[in-house]
């Protein structure tokens, strides 16, 4: 079985990369393949990279409020193209109320400031397995 492939990046002009880098390393340590897209991505570029790189999960690090607006566009593009790649969001600015709203929209999982780091690879593994199954 090939290892789980996860895309990691940030949206728009959100330049805070600490979380994205830390999570990317953590996922690699957990045996996953990380396609690291870095900063300055708009939803079409994320969808294109996800398809080109045949990733199993899209993970976006959010440390500005931009994601609140980009998430709709991203989920819309995925639906339009009939892609069922789960999208997960993580970052200190994601409040409990944001998390509920995002999950209602179709975001597969969110990791806010109170998340224990070990939860992230676990949750991503579960999402990947559910999709493969």
């Amino acid at each position: 079985m090939r290892p789980l492939r996860v895309l990691i990046g940030t949206l728009g002009l959100d330049q805070h990369e600490v979380g994205a880098i830390a999570v990317a390393r953590q996922l690699r340590d957990a045996g996953m393949e990380v396609v690291y897209l870095g900063r300055f991505n708009l939803p079409p570029a994320i969808v294109k990279a996800a398809v080109d790189e045949t990733v199993d999960v899209i993970g976006l690090s959010c440390h500005s409020w931009e994601y609140l607006y980009y998430v709709d566009e991203l989920l819309g593009l995925l639906r339009e193209r009939g892609l069922d790649i789960p999208v997960v969001l993580g970052g200190s600015v994601i409040t409990a109320a944001d998390a509920r709203a995002l999950e209602a929209k179709g975001v597969a999982a969110t990791f806010g400031p109170t998340t224990v780091a070990e939860e992230i690879p676990e949750a991503i593994r579960r999402l990947g397995a559910a999709r493969a199954g």
């Binding site: 728009g12 002009l13 959100d14 330049q15 300055f40 708009l42 500005s64 409020w65 931009e66 609140l68 607006y69 980009y70």
Partner: peptide, 22 residues
């Protein structure tokens, strides 16, 4: 804000959701 710190104008296509928020 983040567009300004990236030396970009607010009407740059990547800036619209970040104008004046940080």
């Amino acid at each position: 804000d983040t567009p300004t710190m990236a030396w970009l104008d607010p009407d740059h296509p990547t800036a619209r959701h970040a104008i004046g928020t940080q």
